[in-house]
Amino acid sequence: MANHANNRPRLIVGNWKMNGSLAANAALLDALAQAPAAGCARVVCPPFPYLAQAATLLAGSEVALGAQNCGHAAAGAYTGEVAAPMLAELGCRYVIVGHSERRAMFGDDDARVAAKTALAFEHGLTPILCVGETLAQYEAGQATAVIDGQLDAVLGTLDAGRIDRLVIAYEPIWAIGTGRSASAEQVDAALERIAAAVARHAASARPQLLYGGSVTAATAQWLAPLARVDGVLVGGASLQAEAFLAIEQAFAAAGQTARG
Score class of each variant (00 low, 15 high):
26 A>L: 12
137 Q>F: 01
76 G>R: 10
17 K>I: 02
235 G>D: 02
148 D>Y: 08
192 E>P: 02
130 C>V: 02
19 N>I: 03
253 A>R: 13
151 L>M: 12
60 G>S: 02
230 D>I: 10
253 A>C: 05
36 P>I: 02
21 S>C: 08
36 P>T: 05
45 C>L: 12
260 G>L: 09
112 R>A: 09
180 R>V: 14
35 A>D: 05
242 E>K: 10
165 R>Q: 15
3 N>K: 05
94 Y>P: 09
201 H>R: 14
58 L>F: 09
197 A>S: 15
5 A>K: 11
130 C>H: 05
186 Q>F: 01
85 P>C: 04
120 A>L: 01
103 R>V: 03
142 Q>Y: 01
105 M>S: 07
73 A>V: 15
26 A>Q: 15
71 G>Y: 00
190 A>C: 05
172 P>T: 11
169 A>C: 06
203 A>D: 12
230 D>E: 04
242 E>G: 07
76 G>F: 10
162 R>T: 01
9 P>C: 08
51 L>G: 10
39 G>L: 07
246 A>L: 08
210 L>H: 03
122 E>Q: 14
141 G>K: 12
251 F>I: 11
75 A>W: 11
90 L>Y: 07
129 L>H: 10
243 A>W: 01
164 D>Q: 07
209 L>I: 08
225 P>L: 03
92 C>D: 07
196 A>V: 05
156 G>Q: 05
81 E>A: 11
